[in-house]
Design a protein around this nucleic acid. Structure first.
Lengths: 189, 189
DNA sequence: TTATTTTAACTAATGATATTAGTTTTATCA
DNA sequence: TGATAAAACTAATATCATTAGTTAAAATAA
């Protein structure tokens, strides 16, 4: 019930190769043709591992979200309160900087509302909720706060990558000030 | 020095048709084939108006940013302070909701660092700077604040569109609370 | 060991796409 | 009226993703 073919690729190797392509050349260069060439096989052979280009993008999105989660979760160990929020924020933004293609892939699934994709993302949301519990926010404020934090982190990463911030002013400093302002303000609302 | 051909399309009509396609079906359906069909011409004829698919995407990005600017600028008339920030924020998010394809196009230029694209975007940045002048922020804080506000608005719009917020909690309320918290916090930093 | 089954590769072919080259039509202007 | 320039066209090419059908290799079952 578990045979092995000649080349013997598994989905993990394929996703790692696809992630390398994405980080080096951007998601628009992650084609079945390029991926197959990198793996030393023919494009149709990839259909044994996932359901076409859409299927690849979905798997890449889940893989990318999981890698992002691991980085954030590791950063969250042993910290709490403001320090925790700041630490995971930096980890998030750094991940997007170091792996622009993987980060891009987390937004390129054919259907981002897909159950598996949402499930992967919900782990990051839950982690954020736990960290914000330190502030004992009232009622729905915690949910609004999570939405705000996610908006800041995704918006910041996205704008930074696309060259949206062109003023000569340190970006890490901006991030720190933005995050601190937000958590300060949310406590007073 | 200004002849006229038989059909006589101008770039504005073409961009409006492309924007309609984008809003209805998403940017991935804005192909030269689909656009030509909608306009009643053959795909190669489009090359008389812009430089291929990349050229179209660049023109669409500029067109989209300009339309977004107009909406924000109109919303900013006759308001100041917190009310102004809240009003333009709602206008921004509403634009992304009403014109998802146009909004998407503002991020799909082949080179977002392109001079013309940046120029279009800088008008929105300058408008935001003027509105934030009401707070008399010290030193570089104004620049950090603009970066924060842009991150929130882009991140919020982007996550909302991709189904990132799945809790059953009013999104407009979230936006209002997030923006208020941020401008409150930035004044104390 | 031998036979069967399953997996993962392959070739060949198709349809859609962007793109280039070269041509034709049409409207303006001298 | 004739020249020019803009904007349409046809024809052809290369690159994709994708499907259908085939083959080879490895693991399991007899």
């Amino acid at each position: 019930m578990s045979p092995r073919p000649k080349v013997g690729l598994d989905i993990k190797e394929i996703l790692e190769a696809a992630a390398e392509l994405a980080d080096q050349f951007g998601m628009q260069e992650v084609t079945l043709a390029n991926l197959a060439k990198k793996l030393g096989i023919r494009p149709p052979s990839l259909y044994n591992h996932f359901d076409g280009l859409g299927g690849l993008r979905k798997k890449m999105a889940i893989y990318g979200i999981e890698r992002l989660y691991e980085v954030i979760a590791k950063a969250a160990i042993g910290v709490a309160g403001d320090e925790a929020v700041l630490t995971i924020s930096k980890a998030y933004v750094n991940f997007a900087r170091e792996h622009p293609g993987i980060y891009e892939s987390t937004l390129m699934a054919p259907d981002l509302e897909d159950e598996e994709v949402q499930l992967a993302g919900s782990k990051i949301v839950e982690l954020t909720v736990r960290i914000l519990q330190a502030y004992s926010l009232e009622g729905d404020t915690a949910i609004h706060a999570v939405r705000g934090l996610r908006s800041i982190l995704h918006g910041f990463s996205s704008l930074e990558r696309s060259g949206g911030f062109k003023m000569a002013l340190d970006l890490n400093e901006s991030l720190e000030i933005i995050i601190k302002a937000f958590i300060q303000g949310i406590q007073e609302s």
